[in-house]
Simulated scan of single mutants.
Amino acid sequence: MAKKGLNKAVVVDCAARLADAEGIVGLSMARLAKTLGIALPSLYAHVRSLENLRQEISLAVNAELSRLMGEAIQGRSGRNAIFALARAYRAYAVTHPGRYAAATLIAPDFSDPRAVEVAKACANVVYDALRGYGLEGDDLTHAARFFRAGLHGFVSIEGQGGFGLDLGVDASFGSFLAAADRALNSWELARP
């Protein structure tokens, strides 16, 4: 008999909380079933496999990140937009390290229309933030890749404890944002 109130959303949320506490790599179906207080076979009524569970976490996280970044840039453009987006992104990654890892380490399943929709929503938020620099077409795409790669790199290194020097990481993040702003302001000069 199924546990009352247990559904796919509850299972994915519990798995996401476990990923934050213990890491996405350490997440197992057995650990999740134990946390939920159900028998392991009962878990498969809600998710097909561990890979499917990780995909569901990634999908939920990307949807949440898209929403948070979109809220952060409301009413802002250019420098103010990318700074607000980056701060929201970084705050999420710091607060939810396991979820962030799921969103960045698990490749989206683009055969799932939900994954396509969420990926487009995330890209559109970044594009909206960057349009304040007057970028369009291919330049907008290249700039979005540049900004996303830099932001993900910084947040990932920070999350892994890679900034070990006794120097404020917040100041480094501010410098990263200022450098990104300068690069985006002179994007036409950055073309090969």
Rank of each mutant, 00 (worst) to 15 (best):
A144F: 04
F154Q: 01
D166L: 13
D166M: 09
Q160I: 03
R148M: 14
L184P: 02
G137S: 12
F163A: 05
E136K: 15
I157G: 05
D166F: 11
S172H: 12
L130E: 06
Q160K: 14
F146A: 05
F163E: 02
E158Q: 10
A183S: 04
F147V: 05
S156F: 05
Q160S: 12
G153N: 08
D138F: 08
S175W: 14
V169K: 11
F176L: 15
G153L: 05
A183D: 02
F147R: 04
A180C: 15
L130Q: 09
D166W: 12
F146I: 04
E136N: 13
A149W: 08
L140K: 09
E136D: 09
D139P: 01
G168Q: 13
G164E: 14
H142I: 03
G134E: 12
L165C: 00
L177R: 10
F163R: 09
A179Q: 13
A143L: 07
G159C: 06
L130V: 07
G159E: 03
A143H: 11
S156E: 11
L140S: 07
S172N: 10
E158D: 08
R148E: 15
G164H: 11
G161P: 01
D138T: 10
R182E: 14
A179R: 12
V155R: 01
Q160E: 12
E136T: 15
S175H: 14
G153I: 08
F154N: 01
D139S: 14
H142T: 08
N185K: 15
I157K: 12
G174C: 08
F154H: 06
Q160G: 14
G150H: 09
G134R: 14
A183W: 01
G134H: 13
L135Y: 03
F146S: 09
G134I: 08
A179Y: 11
G153K: 00
G164V: 10
A144Q: 09
L135S: 03
L167T: 11
F147G: 03
L184I: 07
S156K: 05
Y133F: 15
N185Y: 10
Y133T: 00
L130S: 06
L151N: 00
G134N: 13
D170I: 04
R148G: 06
G161S: 06
A149H: 11
S172P: 02
S175E: 15
G150I: 06
R148A: 14
G162F: 01
G137A: 13
S175D: 15
A144I: 03
A149V: 08
L165A: 11
G174I: 03
R145D: 00
V155S: 15
A180K: 06
A149P: 00
L151H: 00
F146D: 01
L184G: 01
G161L: 02
L151I: 02
S186F: 02
G153A: 13
L151K: 04
H142M: 12
V155M: 10
G164T: 15
G134Y: 10
G159T: 06
A171W: 00
S186D: 11
G168M: 07
S175P: 04
R131C: 07
Y133E: 01
A149C: 10
G162E: 02
S156M: 05
L184M: 04
R182F: 14
G150L: 05
R182Q: 13
Y133K: 07
D166E: 14
E158V: 02
S156A: 10
S186R: 13
F154P: 05
